[in-house]
Write a protein that binds this DNA or RNA. Structure first.
Lengths: 157, 157
DNA sequence: AAGAGATAGTTGACTGGTCAAGTATTGTTG
DNA sequence: CAACAATACTTGACCAGTCAACTATCTCTT
């Protein structure tokens, strides 16, 4: 092993203030969590984003316009189109044109999609918990409050 | 188990425990921060990931083997190759084959790369700070500590 | 009713992340 | 020294995020 990586998790470049370090580490930590989720979700044949769309559709109960789905995701519109293309190809969602406003397509989760989600629920809930499992309840609520502040600032600024 | 979506700004799908919510919000907050950084960095003609590589190379001082760069990123190897391809095409980095071990390529930042970074430094430092700017110093240090815990758990588990 | 503008969604082109499989080179062992 | 394993990357194929430009449809004004 000829690599000169000394401290395991400190492979960060130079860091300025604590705030700068916090910003970088926030992104790193999120990537770690994301990967853990992917490891659980992808064996079921859907990606994390595809899974999120299915969850949104199940949660909504009713079919949703395409852009309403995009609005519930962090993502921008063009990505949703192709995401739904793939989900539709797998038979997990269906798109139907609105009869009144023919610009609108309503998207709904199919029975196959619901069945898939049902089969995943336990494993996914577990990994969500485990993702921040090293934190005690007080830390979890601190984290939640801090993240809300960060996200709120972004939209207001 | 309550699936209540009560707070106004949260249009998240059903959330189970606080831990599950924290995991989801962590990823959301990181995406918000990432986008803010992209908005500052990309006008300079490089992506956030490309910028990170340049920072790593500048920080290292010496040329680094390709895989040493990958190890400092959150990313896996195959991505690095193409990332460096693009940076090399822009003349911001250079790859040189090691004379002793001909499997190894050393990658270094060029003068143009250093100049680009220098022109970006102030703006980037500023956005890093602003990314979590809504937090007071106590919250920043709480966040840092919590994120370290989260990340540490991931690697150990 | 005709045209201007807004809205819903798609398409194209590029960057990036990921896996699996490939090539080139070196080190090791029988 | 020949075969085999390990190392350092590269390549191919797929999914996703993002921007700008496009089509189709609707609404509003005149």
């Amino acid at each position: 092993m000829t690599n000169q990586i000394s401290s395991p998790e400190d492979r960060l470049m130079r860091l300025g203030s604590d705030r700068q370090e916090a910003a970088v580490r926030l992104i790193q930590a999120a990537d770690v969590v994301r990967r853990r989720m992917a490891a659980v979700i992808e064996p079921y044949g859907v990606t994390v984003q595809q899974y999120n769309v299915l969850r949104i559709l199940r949660g909504a109960g009713d079919p949703l316009p395409i852009l309403a789905i995009a609005a519930r995701m962090i993502e921008h519109t063009p990505g949703i189109t192709r995401l739904l293309d793939r989900l539709e190809a797998k038979g997990l969602v269906a798109r139907v044109r609105d009869t009144k406003d023919r610009r609108v397509y309503h998207c709904s989760i199919t029975a196959a999609g619901l069945a898939l989600l049902a089969s995943m629920d336990a494993a996914v809930d577990e990994v969500d918990e485990a993702a921040v499992g090293a934190l005690n309840p007080a830390e979890v609520s601190q984290l939640l409050q801090i993240l809300k502040t960060v996200t709120a600032e972004q939209t207001s600024r």
